[in-house]
Amino acid sequence: MSNIQEQINMLIDVQAVEMEILQAGRHIHVLSGETAALDQAVVEREALVAAEKKALEGMKKSYRELESESKINAGMIAKSNQKLRAVKTNKEYQSILKEIDEIRKRNSAVEDRMLEYLETLESAEQTVAEKVTELQDFIEYCRKKQETIAADEQRERQAVEALNAKKTRISVKADPKIIGILEDVKRKVRGMAVVPVQQAICMGCHLNIPAQLFNELQRLDEIRLCPHCHRIIYWKEKDNE
């Protein structure tokens, strides 16, 4: 095997390792996204439950205000009844009776609203209790799910470390100048920087390379680039079969 062929093989190996690192990096990104999505889902559910709790507290406050108003009305009726025992004229008596009747009517409306609130409060309290339980279950589910994701992410990061070490081991054996060419090509092209030529066609851009270049490529005497896409190209022996 010629020295150039050995160098090309090293470049191919480096590229293969880099592709594995890239795929692992993408997987890590997906896992991180899943973790963030679970966090966001918890925040959203917590906000919904908090809103329902706030609405429930608002109803309880309104009920307490009605309850306070009812007590005030009851106190006013009691005072008016005391005044009845002290009146001396029929006109005053009738006036106080009318006042008591108006207070009772107002209080009856208040009590009706209190009953409506009691029915709503009972249903709302049950709903909130169920939502709180569901939220706790969901938080626990997310916690366990994130633990699994974290373990997967840790394995991927360890794999990346191992791949980087493997890449370093390969790279140190390669000619620094050729590694430099590889890095330069990688900055200029997307995807694979080292591609084979099959039947005089560059597998990077899928265009025919000149016949002379194809013949030169088979000499394996130096690194050559595709004249179209500028990737590093190499010839496989099966093309000669």
Rank of each mutant, 00 (worst) to 15 (best):
227 P>V: 03
154 Q>S: 12
230 H>N: 12
36 A>E: 14
45 R>V: 00
28 I>Y: 00
100 I>Q: 07
28 I>N: 08
25 G>N: 10
60 K>M: 09
73 N>Q: 08
167 K>Y: 09
17 V>I: 15
236 K>N: 14
97 L>R: 11
170 I>E: 11
165 A>K: 14
19 M>T: 11
131 K>H: 10
103 I>E: 12
57 E>I: 03
147 E>M: 03
131 K>N: 10
236 K>M: 11
16 A>Q: 14
234 Y>W: 06
200 A>K: 13
42 V>L: 05
241 E>M: 07
110 V>T: 12
185 V>K: 01
23 Q>I: 06
59 M>G: 04
59 M>H: 08
110 V>K: 06
22 L>P: 00
81 N>H: 09
108 S>I: 05
65 E>L: 09
181 I>P: 03
195 V>S: 04
207 L>K: 14
198 Q>I: 10
32 S>C: 06
18 E>T: 00
173 K>G: 02
216 E>A: 08
55 A>F: 00
179 I>W: 03
43 V>Q: 15
46 E>G: 08
15 Q>Y: 05
106 R>A: 11
110 V>N: 09
215 N>V: 07
5 Q>V: 15
5 Q>L: 15
185 V>F: 07
147 E>P: 03
72 I>Y: 11
80 S>D: 14
160 V>Y: 03
1 M>I: 05
108 S>Q: 15
225 L>M: 05
6 E>I: 08
239 D>C: 02
213 L>H: 02
27 H>S: 12
74 A>N: 10
117 Y>H: 10
229 C>I: 03
144 K>I: 00
181 I>R: 07
146 Q>T: 02
18 E>C: 02
78 A>C: 01
50 A>Q: 11
150 A>Y: 06
209 I>A: 05
41 A>I: 02
133 T>Y: 10
42 V>S: 09
156 E>A: 13
196 P>E: 13
203 M>I: 01
241 E>R: 10
217 L>R: 03
46 E>V: 03
34 E>C: 01
68 S>N: 15
235 W>Y: 11
137 D>M: 08
160 V>R: 04
141 Y>S: 06
175 D>H: 05
74 A>S: 12
54 K>C: 07
67 E>A: 06
29 H>S: 14
165 A>Q: 15
168 T>W: 07
172 V>G: 08
24 A>M: 04
212 Q>E: 15
141 Y>K: 06
58 G>S: 09
5 Q>N: 14
9 N>F: 07
2 S>V: 02
210 P>E: 01
195 V>A: 01
26 R>H: 13
4 I>P: 12
109 A>T: 09
93 Y>H: 14
199 Q>I: 04
173 K>Y: 00
21 I>E: 13
136 Q>H: 06
55 A>P: 04
24 A>V: 02
234 Y>H: 11
102 E>P: 00
48 L>V: 14
73 N>K: 09
14 V>C: 13
139 I>S: 10
154 Q>Y: 06
189 V>L: 06
